[in-house]
Design a protein around this nucleic acid. Structure first.
Lengths: 110, 110
DNA sequence: TTCTATATATAAGAATCCTATATGTAAGGG
DNA sequence: CCCTTACATATAGGATTCTTATATATAGAA
C-alpha cells in the first residue's frame, strides 16, 4: 500500500471522484477508494470523517442522515455543483504535479 | 504553480532526484526544482532546509561545508548510496499513486 | 552606501495524515 | 440468549510537512 507521506493530500480528490459516481456514506466510501485502486490507496475512517466535515463546510459535498432498509442510521454524502466545479481544476493540478515529478526524476538518467 | 495541499510530500522525491544529477547546495537546489519543472513545483528555502537536515539524519544525503570561488560559505549536499537505494522504491510508490488516482478519477466518466 | 542577489537558519502556525479509543446497531452461530 | 463479526460514526492526541515571517550575513553593481 502507498505510504502516508506520499499519499498526503489525495483524500480530497479521491472523495470527490468517488462521490461523483453516486452518493455514499463514509464507511462505504472508504471501501470504494480501496477497491477501485486495487488496495493501493486506503484511508482510515478516522481520517475520512474529519475530511468529510471539512468538505461539507466548504460546500463541496452535502450530507444527509438516512436510515437504511436494515434500520441503520448513516450519513449519506453527495457532491454539490460547487464540488463538481472544484473537481476539474483539482484533477488538472494533480496531472501537472505528475508531469513535474516525471520531468524531475527523468532528467539526465532516462 | 501547484498548491501546497497537492504537492505535499513531493520534496523528498524532488531533492533526491535533483541531487542524483550532481551535488548542490540548498539555494541552488531550490532553483533547479523550479527550473526543471517550468515553475510548476516550487519550494521555499524555509521548507527545504529542515527537509535537508532530516534527510541527512536519515543518511540519504550527506552535506559538507564548502567555500565557493567568490568566498561564499555554503553547504553542499550529495546523495549517499543509501539515498540512491531509497530513490527507486520512492519513484515506484509515486507511480503507483498516480495509477491509483487515475483509476479513481476515470471510473464511470471517461 | 544602498540595493539586489546569494546563502543559511529558526519560529510559529496550518493542514492532513496516523493510532488508539469510544459508542452503538444488526446479523449469524452456538 | 450470548458472543462474535460486520457495520457505522466519532473524537483525542500525536507526527509530519508544508506555510509566512523574521533574522543574519556576504558579494557585486549602481
Amino acid at each position: 500500500m502507498i505510504g502516508s507521506g506520499v499519499k498526503r493530500g489525495t483524500a480530497e480528490l479521491a472523495v470527490l471522484s468517488v462521490l461523483r459516481d453516486g452518493p455514499l456514506h463514509g464507511y462505504e466510501l472508504a471501501r470504494r477508494i480501496e477497491q477501485q485502486t486495487d488496495g493501493a490507496l486506503r484511508f482510515t475512517l478516522a481520517a475520512l470523517y474529519p475530511m468529510l466535515y471539512r468538505m461539507e463546510q466548504q460546500r463541496w459535498i452535502r450530507g444527509s442522515w438516512e436510515t437504511s432498509a436494515s434500520g441503520r442510521r448513516r450519513r449519506c454524502y453527495r457532491v454539490t455543483p460547487a464540488g463538481k466545479k472544484k473537481l476539474s481544476p483539482l484533477r488538472r493540478e494533480w496531472a501537472e504535479l505528475f508531469r513535474a515529478l516525471h520531468r524531475l526524476t527523468k532528467v539526465a538518467h532516462g
